[in-house]
């Protein structure tokens, strides 16, 4: 079977502040994921704001170097120790869609030239044929070449621009698209078009996706696998439906309880949770213990490892581990 995505003890440390008050942020703290399949898959990555999701995406896209560990995509080591994939073949393995579409486009270049140049750089085809490729890609996100012709990024709304970035990523027909919150700025009615487009591309062009999102409902809707992150660590990983219909890690449970649904209103008495503090990134033990209703002594001392449950999911929680040993 193909290794679609695998990370081995992936680590990324950011250093902030001056010489005296330097802080280390373990944005990725020994992250281990592994998805093997001969079929294309959609893997969702969800979790806390600032938990390292974008950092993971950037490592896999080779935009930043990991501090330790390695990342493998479609059987190729793309980052970390032993990474050898050359630039050209890398582009047809991994393509990005980013969270902030305004960062993805140069504000000095018209969107059409940007797209044509992208197509040209990747395929080497002449402009006329690149126009066809670009039109094809734009149509699949509900736009046309004529709509972008001669326009600069600031002439589009955030949502419009995001659809254009989806189109841009589709041009080289990559093995996996890493989509970092591709629909967070898109409204409900078009959101499903993009999401369904991912499903369609998975079937028709056999493209896999790493879908990073805060929208658990769309994650449920499209994913085969799901990884939940909290402060640089994975807390739960496995089949998406298994996890979302019966979350085991206390953080995953809190996450699901907080979704704004159209079924039931929040009660008045619910208290806002305390926000994160950077120091917890460097803490020993379980990162979630300060907020965990089940926390015990061991949670402050030992970092929980992966416990494999019979339904093939991995949960990083001492309490879950002990419960499993009981049965």
């Amino acid at each position: 079977m193909k290794t679609i995505l695998k990370t081995n003890d992936l680590h990324k440390v950011y250093r902030l502040g001056g010489l005296l008050n330097r802080v280390r942020i373990n944005a990725l703290d020994r992250v281990n994921l592994h998805v093997q399949s001969d079929e294309p898959v959609i893997i969702s990555l969800v979790g806390e704001s600032g938990s390292g999701k974008t950092t993971l995406a950037k490592v896999m896209l080779r935009l930043i170097e990991p501090s330790a560990g390695q990342a493998i995509v479609y059987d190729q080591v793309v980052a970390g120790k032993g990474a050898r994939t050359d630039k050209k073949s890398f582009l047809s393995i991994v393509q990005p869609i980013f969270q902030n579409p305004f960062e993805a486009f140069s504000s000095y270049r018209t969107v059409d030239t940007y797209l044509i140049r992208t197509a040209n750089k990747i395929t080497g085809l002449p402009t006329a044929e690149c126009e066809d490729l670009v039109e094809e890609a734009l149509v699949s996100v509900g736009m046309h070449y004529a709509d972008v012709l001669g326009k600069y990024p600031n002439q589009f709304s955030g949502g419009e621009l995001q659809r254009i970035s989806v189109a841009r990523a589709l041009i080289p027909k990559p093995g996996i698209i890493i989509a970092d919150e591709p629909v967070s700025m898109i409204d409900a009615s078009l959101r499903m078009n993009v999401i369904n487009l991912f499903l369609k591309l998975k079937e028709e062009t056999r493209t896999s996706f790493l879908y990073i999102t805060h929208d658990l409902a769309t994650a449920y809707y499209i994913s085969d696998y799901l990884a939940v992150m909290y402060r640089g660590t994975i807390v739960e990983f496995g089949h998406a439906r298994t996890i979302l219909s019966d979350p085991q890690h206390p953080y995953t449970q809190l996450l699901l309880d907080s979704v704004a649904t159209m079924n039931q209103k929040w009660t008045e008495t619910e208290i806002a949770m305390q926000d994160m503090e950077a120091t917890e990134f460097t803490a020993v033990g379980c990162r979630f213990r300060h907020r965990c209703p089940l926390a015990e002594e061991i949670c402050a001392e030992v970092r929980p490892g992966a416990t494999l449950l019979p339904d093939e999911r991995e949960v990083y929680c001492h309490v879950v581990e002990r419960e499993l040993e009981k049965v």
Partner: peptide, 10 residues
Amino acid sequence: TALDVVVQKG
């Protein structure tokens, strides 16, 4: 937008 649902709810 762009925040996790726990923080959003808060």
